[in-house]
Design a protein around this nucleic acid. Structure first.
Length: 205
DNA sequence: GAATAGATTGTCT
DNA sequence: GACAATCTATTCT
């Protein structure tokens, strides 16, 4: 049994959300559950910067039971449910009172492939294991029971991993957000096959 | 590969 | 009652 990697410290999360979103690329997401441990390299993220960001749940200062943890201190998980069937996993960043978060959109599976494949009903070799925000939550068994849990201790955390070339592009699924739709606040590892949608054009970093 | 429709429910107005 | 930080299947080309 290999020793688990060590969690990145809270100071990693206590920085501007765009910095954290970019530096998450290549980090390992680790989840120890009763069924076993799963790990994946983060290859795609998006930054949400409320209250000014119209695409963020905290836009305009909205503070509800659903998004409450976004308003709390950095280094906690924000997990919510959309479209009646999918979960989304986020990392709360910056500082208490700043409702900023990083959405994890895609992983490259690293450990626990059989468990992920079983949870997803897909072959271990399939990109559909973790190439989307809803898919990775299912593969890693993340749901609202993880909302508000600390990422610096316990069974769910980030750890250092090898990073590759990063590109940035427009965020996905927020066409209602006006000018905020245009922001290049999505970060992904260039050429990685698990990235959910290939960025258009050439947006180097 | 791209475009489209349908699924399905928590959350807020 | 409307809508959502998505996924899947289907129907094209």
């Amino acid at each position: 049994m290999a020793r688990l990697p060590r969690p990145v410290p809270q100071s990693f999360y206590e920085r501007p959300v765009l910095v954290v979103a970019k530096e998450c690329i290549g980090k390992l997401l680790v989840h120890r559950s009763a069924a076993g441990t799963t790990m994946g390299r983060i290859v795609e993220t998006e930054a949400y910067r409320g209250p000014e960001d119209r695409a963020a749940h905290s836009f305009g200062g909205r503070r509800t039971p659903r998004n409450e943890v976004m308003w709390g201190p950095a280094g906690f998980a924000y997990v919510f449910f959309v479209y009646g069937l999918h979960h989304q996993f986020n990392l709360v960043t910056t500082a208490e009172g700043k409702p900023h978060a990083v959405l994890v959109r895609a992983l490259e599976p690293v450990h626990g492939l059989p468990l992920m494949a079983d949870r997803r009903g897909q072959a271990e070799s399939s990109v559909h294991l973790t190439n989307g925000p809803g898919k990775l939550c299912q593969a890693m068994s993340l749901d609202r029971s993880h909302n508000g849990v600390p990422l610096t201790m316990g069974d769910l955390f980030l750890a250092d991993g090898p990073s590759g070339p990063i590109e940035r592009s427009r965020r996905i699924g927020i066409d209602y957000a006006g000018e905020w739709t245009e922001k290049l606040w999505r970060f992904s590892e260039k050429g990685n096959r698990y990235v959910s949608r290939r960025p258009k054009g050439r947006q180097g970093l």
